[in-house]
Amino acid sequence: MGLSDSADTRLSQEGAATVAADDPAMAADDRSGVLVAPLQTIMNWARGHSMWPMTFGTACCAIEMMTVGSPRYDTDRFGIFFRNSPRQADCMIVAGTISLKMAPRMKLLYEQMAEPKYVIAMGACAISGGPFMHGYNVVNGVDQIMPVDIYIPGCPPRPEALINGLLTLMKRNAAGELSAAQRYRLETEGHL
């Protein structure tokens, strides 16, 4: 994880073109030397059907994040199942404003997650600082600190939007696309 070392970790949306599973870059994956293609297919299927986000809610968006588990939205249908421990979570939904005091904790939690890991920036605050972006204590977008896979606009986004974001992420996984962190490492360090 060389992320924190670099001053500029912001990934531009255009610059980080998605790398598909059949991309030669996949050859750099140290696992693909061992894993044969069908196994990769099964793994992609599993990652596309099981997504355990971590319960990381800081502000208003956290209430809407709770709501997606409620009967009307019921993310359990899609295999989305909230885990408390970062070690077992696949993706971190940054639901809310990140203050300078919270930022090191968030970074720590991110580093505690097991690869492959994904980050969803939920809501205006997580994307850019939102209504508080001019403040003296608010991180202007979590992508300044960690690579973000999915941005979900809104203040707060509707639960449907969050579900859409999660499903988009799962579809990408099913297609074997790389996570933002992997793309970043591929670009900067040349390996996954």
């Binding site: 001053a7 930022a103 608010v138 300044q144």
Partner: peptide
């Protein structure tokens, strides 16, 4: 207050310690 809020460099510096 900085007109653009907290600069990215300051946010990144903030994550190094608590």
């Amino acid at each position: 207050m900085s007109p653009d809020g907290v600069p990215a460099a300051a946010s990144q510096a903030a994550i190094s310690d608590h």
